[in-house]
Design a protein around this nucleic acid. Structure first.
Length: 784
DNA sequence: CCGGAACGCC
């Protein structure tokens, strides 16, 4: 009875050997059932006891478990026996074909089926490999009306939409409405799919509403809601609350998936005690040995500032996968990323592209380029450099290392470039002030895909950074952001404000700021720093006040701008007050830059002891720039004792830098302490310090791409062909400055004296007459 | 008897 083999699952292996030719031969001897039989009831069995025709249900069951090689024979048998009059018989064939990797055959079964129901469509819908095609198929199904969509249709369609995240929110809403109208929204599976689709689209409110409206909920519903909240990331506290509600509710017992979502939420809140409790709960459930739970627990301990616990857990795990190690590489503060990478290799675990991203982002800025290249080499060897994530961060790393040609090579070798790759390359060129390259890549990019907010932020900052590039480009990009509806984004607004402040005027920057609807921290920061750079102290303070009052918490960056404004203005008390409020009120970490700024401000104001005291509080120690500015302040205020201490630290950290020696020697000289001068000179000689010649440069003809020339010169430089004229003008400018300085405390006789001097100066051609000079003074002083 | 929903590290 060879035919029996085709039907009986346990003989599936034997059926696999049956060629379709043999099957056809056998089918000729199968008696045909009544082919005109109604499709709703099984035809009367012409051959009692024959499995192929006795029951279409048994036939479908056999199909569901058969091996791929037996499917053509089964298909032929279904047609031959007339069983294909039942939709579900064809459906089971199509489903089996699709599941065993032969989608085109499944589609053919669908196309040639004698009867189709919703399940037929659902089978194809869930099997289509391309989501876009699946959505097209769905709309065709809805339009054709051959079969009414059922709960499964909505479940599959919603999960398709869920995979597209925010882009498909409109579709989700539409499906929700259709399901409600069909009375299918109360279905458990549809409800679960709705919760998932809304949360993946970022509509947590709608997801919560769908969850609460469900008449019954199972563990999947709870997990969908918990995971949705967890992935949103904005409300870790709610994740924990929902998990506790699940425990109290008792409707379902949490499982590994629930625990897996709650643990990161504990970590995000830094709640170590709670995290430990959930860890205990995982032990009680018996899921703690699972590698997924181990991984989230390790990450949770790292996030909760318990790296020791994280590391101990990692080491004690039964099995560590690439995720476990990648977590440690990106989060362990103790061990070097490379050391951990080697540990991973010794553990027999292969890296993936995420591992490389973690390694590359662990590269400190000052690390030799060799390390970046080493990672690149291993990345190429393991074939992971083709992965977008790895390639994208390679581009970023090379850009950070100022090696744009290498970044470009990585980019050019990518088989498929996503928007992140384009943006990484463009922003790399922008950061390295290679504006024309940035613009060239940008113009190539817009031919393939739509630029994003980040893209415009990069090209605008590229235009801003390079002064020889016409502002017309920046204005064009501004126009394009308006057209594409990207001008309201915080990054675009921020860079526009920055651009107008640097290359246009403060007024234009203000206009850009006022046109920004949603003023985020980034937007405020751009506006405050624009005003700080222009020295508009009053505006800075007014804006800062406005920002704080609008409920935005300042960060280190914006506070540095505010402190800088205080420094320029010499508003020492206000500056000091703000500095003191940083840790106490704003809970902002104090950076070396903040200290350096305040040290400089105090130093300029002559409060040298305070400045020194503050400088010594810096951790891990006073920064070079703080020391240098304090030494400069000591010179202005003639304080030798502090200058000696400061110069000591400076010359110890940078023994071959001449700056500190020269400055200290000048301080001694100004005091007439020639012994001190000799001491410093001796020190310099002993340590082999040479004072380097300082060069200055001037960008002549800036703003015009063709005629820009860079002129370099040093003191007593006579190499320029126009040397004589240059010295004459410089001397004239020196005189002008002296005159203007004196004008501040000028009385009548002095004024007369100056005017005579001025008239004597043949090169001060501008003010050859008294009238012209007074006109100049009037306009100069009225500007403040 | 066919088709359906939830998860970690970047």
């Amino acid at each position: 009875m060879p035919l029996r083999r085709l039907q009986i699952p346990c003989h599936a292996r034997a059926a696999a050997t049956l060629s379709s030719v043999a099957a056809h031969h056998l089918f000729d001897r199968i008696p045909r059932p009544n082919s005109s039989g109604s499709s709703s009831t099984p035809p009367a069995s012409p051959c009692v006891g024959h499995p192929a025709s006795s029951s279409p249900f048994a036939f479908s069951a056999a199909v569901a478990q058969s091996v791929p090689a037996a499917l053509p024979a089964l298909h032929a048998l279904a047609v031959a026996s007339g069983l294909d009059a039942f939709a579900f018989v064809s459906n089971s064939l199509a489903a089996r074909y699709a599941k065993t990797g032969s989608f085109p055959t499944a589609a053919r079964v669908f196309d040639t089926a004698r009867a189709r129901d919703a399940s037929s469509y659902n089978t194809i819908l869930s099997a289509l490999p391309d989501p876009a095609e699946a959505l097209a198929f769905l709309s065709w199904m809805l339009r054709s009306g051959e079969a009414r969509p059922d709960a499964v249709t909505f479940t599959v369609a919603l999960s398709l939409a869920a995979g597209r995240g925010e882009d498909a929110l409109g579709l989700v809403r539409q499906l929700h409405a259709l399901a409600s109208r069909a009375g299918l929204a109360a279905d458990l599976f549809v409800g679960n799919a709705l919760v998932t689709a809304y949360s993946r689209g970022g509509l947590l409110d709608a997801a919560t509403r769908a969850f609460e409206e469900m008449p019954t909920r199972d563990l999947v519903s709870w997990n969908a809601m918990i995971c949705g909240l967890a992935q949103d990331g904005d409300s870790p506290a709610e994740v924990v609350l929902l998990f506790l509600r699940l425990l109290k509710d008792g409707a379902a017992r949490p499982d590994r998936i629930s625990v897996c979502s709650v643990i990161p939420a504990c970590g995000d809140q830094g709640k170590l005690v709670l995290g430990r409790q959930v860890h205990g709960f995982a032990v009680k459930l018996g899921v703690h040995r699972h590698v997924s739970i181990g991984n989230v627990l390790v990450a949770m301990y790292y996030k909760c500032d318990a790296p020791g616990c994280g590391r101990k857990l990692l080491d004690s795990m039964d099995e560590r996968d690439v995720i476990s190690w990648t977590t440690a590489i990106s989060m362990d503060p103790e061990d070097d990323a490379f050391t951990l990478y080697n540990g991973m290799r010794r553990d027999g675990v292969s890296p993936n592209e995420v591992t490389f991203v973690a390694l590359m982002s662990a590269l400190p800025a000052g690390r030799p380029a060799r390390d970046g290249q080493m990672i690149h080499a291993v990345c190429l060897k393991t074939g992971l450099s083709d992965k977008a994530a790895a390639a994208n961060s390679l581009i970023t790393v090379y850009a950070k290392l100022r090696r744009m040609d290498d970044a470009r090579t990585v980019f050019d070798l990518m088989p498929r470039r996503d928007i992140i790759a384009w943006n990484a390359l463009i922003s790399g060129y922008a950061q390295n002030e290679r504006c024309s390259d940035a613009l060239e890549v940008f113009s190539r990019m817009v031919r393939c895909l739509r630029p994003s907010e980040t893209t415009f932020a990069s090209v605008i900052s590229a235009v801003t950074a390079v002064e020889t590039v016409s502002m017309a480009y920046g204005e064009t990009y501004h126009g394009q952001t308006l057209k594409l509806g990207l001008s309201a984004g915080e990054y675009v607004s921020g860079t526009l404000i920055d651009m107008y402040a640097k290359r246009g005027s403060l007024d234009e920057a203000r206009r850009a700021f006022e046109e920004t609807e949603h003023r985020s921290l980034i937007v405020w920061t751009a506006m405050i720093s624009a005003n700080a750079k222009h020295g508009s102290y009053d505006n800075v303070m007014r804006l800062f006040d406005g920002m704080v009052r609008s409920g935005i918490a300042p960060d280190g960056v914006v506070l540095l701008s505010v402190l800088t404004a205080c420094r320029y203005r010499g508003a020492v008390d206000t500056g000091k007050e703000i500095f003191d409020s940083m840790a106490a009120k704003h809970r902002v970490e104090l950076w070396p830059e903040h200290y350096a700024c305040v040290v400089d401000m105090l130093g300029r104001a002559g409060r040298l002891e305070e400045a020194e005291e503050l400088m010594l509080q810096m951790s891990p120690g006073p920064s070079i720039s703080a020391l240098q500015s304090l030494l400069g302040a000591c010179r202005i205020h003639g304080n030798t004792s502090i200058a000696e201490r400061v110069a000591d630290i400076l010359t110890e950290t940078e023994p071959t830098e001449s700056g500190a020696y020269v400055l200290l020697s000048n301080i001694y000289a100004e005091k007439g302490d020639w012994g001190g001068v000799a001491k410093v000179r001796r020190q310099m000689r002993d340590r082999g310090v040479r004072k380097e010649i300082g060069f200055s440069w001037v960008d002549f003809g800036a703003g015009n791409r063709e005629s820009t020339h860079l002129h370099k010169f040093s003191s007593d430089d006579t190499t320029h062909p126009l040397t004589e004229e240059i010295y004459r003008v410089a001397e004239g400018l020196g005189w002008e400055m002296k005159l203007l300085k004196n004008h501040l405390c000028m009385d009548k006789p002095k004024k007369a004296a100056i005017n005579i001097t001025l008239l004597k100066l043949g090169h001060a051609t501008k003010y050859r007459t008294r009238k012209a000079y007074f006109a100049f003074c009037k306009t100069f002083f009225s500007q403040g």
